[in-house]
Amino acid sequence: MIRIADLRHRLLDIPGLAVDARHIAVIGPNGSGKTTLLSVCSGIEEPDAGTVRLLDRPPSAVKVGWVGEFPDRTLLFSLVYDEIASTPRFRHRPCPETDATARAAAEEVGIRHLLGKETSSLSGGEKALVALAAACAGDPEVLVLDEADSHLDAVTAERVSRVVRESTAAHVLWCTQSMDAAAAADYVLFMEKGRVRHHGTPAEVFSALEETCFYPTMWRVCR
């Protein structure tokens, strides 16, 4: 369960919200507060007022994996292997366990062949996959993706979607500009001017957005 109560932070104004769903899509126009909400839910930012609880705990007490829109801003290490292994290393896991975890995460994302590469030599899509593997290596309880699919080709975006679907995380919070991807979620939050204007199943939310640019393209085609 994700619970938000009396949340005030920057432009965010969310009096109350409780979501008991695994794959939660966060959508809305630019500047609506989506990234700020994800930052607060992941523990990157502390709210000015109110509370956020993930699995009945504050974000700081939950294992959260984060994948941002621009992996260049978050990749810390020069080698792919070191980037993926960083999470278990930061948790002081034994070397054999760290090695096995890093290689398993790379295998899961389909980038084992990149382990010996320098991160600076990778394409944008490859960097996004490395960031996703690093997040998965932490065995996250909550996986947060902030428009991680925005600059990916169709093949790489589908690979990211597959990894997310197969993740063992209790919750996946995915901010996306792809309404077709959002339509495949269990639950959708539509944000506008810092508020959650609509929330519910994809059918419930998109029925309120049918005359807007936020209606899924595939749904228009199939009508």
Rank of each mutant, 00 (worst) to 15 (best):
I2W: 06
I2S: 08
R3D: 07
R8N: 11
L11E: 10
P15N: 14
L17C: 13
A18Q: 15
D20V: 11
D20H: 11
D20R: 15
V26Q: 01
T35L: 09
S39P: 04
C41F: 01
C41A: 15
S42E: 05
G43D: 11
G43S: 12
I44C: 02
I44P: 13
P47T: 14
D48P: 05
G50V: 09
V52D: 02
L55M: 14
R57V: 14
P58N: 08
A61L: 06
K63G: 11
V64H: 10
G65R: 09
W66H: 11
W66R: 11
V67G: 03
V67T: 08
G68N: 10
F70V: 15
P71H: 06
L76D: 03
F77M: 14
S78T: 14
S78P: 05
Y81C: 00
E83T: 00
I84T: 03
T87N: 09
P88Q: 05
R89C: 03
P94H: 10
P96G: 09
E97M: 07
E97C: 04
D99H: 08
A100I: 12
A102R: 12
A104W: 08
E108W: 10
I111Y: 00
R112P: 08
L114I: 04
L115D: 01
G116V: 03
S120T: 14
K127C: 08
A128H: 15
L129P: 02
A131N: 01
L132Q: 05
L132Y: 05
A135Y: 02
G138N: 04
G138K: 12
G138P: 02
D139L: 02
E141Y: 02
L143D: 07
L145K: 05
S150F: 00
L152M: 05
L152E: 07
D153Y: 09
A154F: 08
V155W: 04
T156V: 10
T156L: 07
A157D: 09
A157V: 02
R159P: 03
S161M: 01
R162D: 12
V164I: 13
S167D: 05
A169C: 09
H171K: 06
L173T: 06
L173S: 10
T176N: 01
Q177A: 10
M179W: 00
D180H: 05
A181W: 06
A184N: 03
V188F: 00
L189P: 08
F190N: 12
M191K: 13
V196C: 00
R197S: 13
G200Y: 04
P202S: 14
E204W: 08
V205Q: 00
V205W: 07
E210F: 07
F214G: 06
Y215A: 07
M218D: 09
R220A: 13
C222V: 06
